[in-house]
Design a protein around this nucleic acid. Structure first.
Lengths: 340, 340
DNA sequence: CTGAAAGCGCTTACAG
DNA sequence: CTGAAAGCGCTTACAG
């Protein structure tokens, strides 16, 4: 048998379709008694709204979009994205919003996807990640008028609302901790240089090292993959004055760095200390477990979803600063050997 | 300005809306000349179909659903899901289908999600993963009539079409390889026992060991998490007759097992060989790199999407057997020490 | 091969 | 507080 529509409910309740719509959507226009009766009938009939019909009538699509611009292999191994998705989901599904996902090859096709989604009214809003310096997506989304929340520093988010955390502060904490342990030769293996947070961390790293009177700090650009991090780490550890501590911009690279140290017979943390940005379960999977900057990525996602839903409903919103990543010391950091 | 509709195109082309619809959807009913002209105008106007209107008219929703029933932390760390999603996506987006994702807490709410999706006509079909023994989702999906493709052994998929691979064969390969290396004490750390493929691998493991005349094989139930695998591995390696080779049911557990061996001062592969099911990049991130069963998960996803799309379009389909996972030997396996 | 029309299931002004 | 009606942008029989 066919699924019930509001017309069925209206007939059964002896009211108009309009009244049913008002009753079911919690809008003014029906008495509480009628509303309760209509709700009861809807429940009894097992009614659920046809989202297509809703969307066509100019109401929301009840869906939120997320486009991911990373190659499959990188997406797979970095726990970040799935944790973010879980966090988004927890808020969205509680409000019966669906999450529409698309993997894209580059920022240009990402903008294309947003344009299409919005034109087709597939989504009511989007969450963007990996904010870049002068990010082309920001003006484009503003122009489209598609509600959007950016995960990243507000300085790069234009008029979009954003969820952000104090990366510079967190990075400074790490440097000061390593300096306090006695390290003077500190290296940083960075993420993709075009990403805004990479720049912010770069600057904080240099500033913190300068403040500590360290001139020997090194930065090497990488790309979040284990392969690149392994190559760089081999080079760093083979140099005449190898660093005594290395800070990696994600968990995957830090794990790869640890493996290279082991492969080269260097003790961790005896010969070299290792710190990972992003304390995923990966960091506790290896031996020694990695000292890491911990942040609750699922919470980021949940906050982003809440902000976006508010935006979609026309509630004025502001940027949301999430917790600053916390340094969690584990077995991969220690004072450098005295002879160094 | 408002986005163009087929009415705008029809006016401009001097034809009816119906003709425009036929032309744009590649259906019979218009001459090729008219079709080309209408297509040109649509392009010029920047028209894109309103999916809500399409769906409401009884056509497809142009969306496919995927519900994931794993806790956020597990989802995050196991590369499997993101790779599967990437594979699905590659086929779906090429055909302008969206992927709708939802994280659910248990199989019961998973079925609820399917019911709602289908009632709301949010999706045209779904892909289900982690097939269980006597999986309740299978009869439910059959009853709903929601097109569905299962990733898993056809023996558990009922009338649903499935993408599967010969897990038993792959597991047998591993055992025979280890036996050929000289191992007699082989342990297997399994995945969730309620999953169908866990049972299939269990049986294959016992059969292969029996064929090789090995009585000492051990199986310990685990849950894909590093924490559980670490605990089990500590116990295994502490026993009076520790295994000389351990086969883990996913990459995460194998990496955790390696870390425990290192923590306990056991050499890998000298004291114990390690094999991982699922050769994700994780396996090559650690030292020594892990011998693993390699399969192309993105390809699984792509095949599943293709099968589902065919099903949605009413094309008769059959199960699809994907490649058998290939054993990739790396540094974590070797003959056992002669004194053992 | 083409046109005019009904209808999908909602929402939302507009009258009462 | 309630009802009748228009309309969202498509698709698809049904006539010509």
């Amino acid at each position: 048998m066919k699924r019930p529509t509001i017309a069925d409910i209206a007939r059964r309740a002896g009211v108009s379709k309009g009244a049913v719509s008002y009753a079911l959507n919690g809008q003014a226009g029906v008495s509480e008694a009628t509303r309760a009766r209509i709700r009861g009938i809807a429940e009894e009939l097992g009614w659920s709204p046809n989202t297509a019909a809703r969307a066509l009538s100019g109401a929301a699509a009840y869906a939120v979009g997320l486009a991911l611009c990373r190659p499959a292999r990188v997406l797979g191994i970095e726990p970040f994205f799935m944790e973010l998705i879980s966090g988004l989901e927890s808020e969205l599904s509680a409000r019966s919003y669906a999450l529409t996902l698309q993997v894209v090859a580059d920022p240009v096709s990402e903008v294309e996807v947003y344009r299409r989604w919005w034109a087709e009214r597939r989504v009511d809003g989007v969450v963007i990640v990996d904010l870049r310096h002068e990010d082309p997506r920001v003006p484009e989304l503003e122009k489209l008028g598609l509600p959007a929340v950016a995960i990243g520093d507000p300085r790069g988010a234009g008029n979009l609302s954003g969820i952000w955390a104090d990366d510079a502060g967190a990075l400074t904490d790490v440097v000061e901790y390593l300096v306090a342990l006695g390290h003077r030769q500190i290296a940083r293996v960075t993420g993709l240089p075009e990403l805004l947070h990479t720049r912010i961390r770069d600057e904080a790293f240099i500033a913190a090292c300068t403040r500590a009177g360290i001139g020997e700090q090194q930065m090497v650009q990488a790309d979040y993959t284990g392969a690149t991090a392994a190559r760089i780490t081999r080079r760093l550890l083979s140099s005449r004055t190898p660093p005594t501590a290395v800070l990696y911009d994600n968990d995957v690279m830090a794990v790869a760095g640890l493996a290279v140290a082991q492969e080269m017979g260097r003790a961790v943390p005896g010969d070299v200390s290792i710190v990972a940005w992003d304390d995923s379960p990966l960091c506790q999977l290896v031996h020694p477990p990695l000292t890491a900057l911990n942040r609750d990525i699922a919470a980021y996602g949940a906050h982003a979803a809440r902000l976006l839903l508010a935006l979609i409903e026309g509630v004025p919103t502001d940027d949301f600063q999430d917790e600053t990543p916390r340094l969690v010391p584990r077995g991969s950091t220690a004072p450098p050997r005295p002879d160094r």
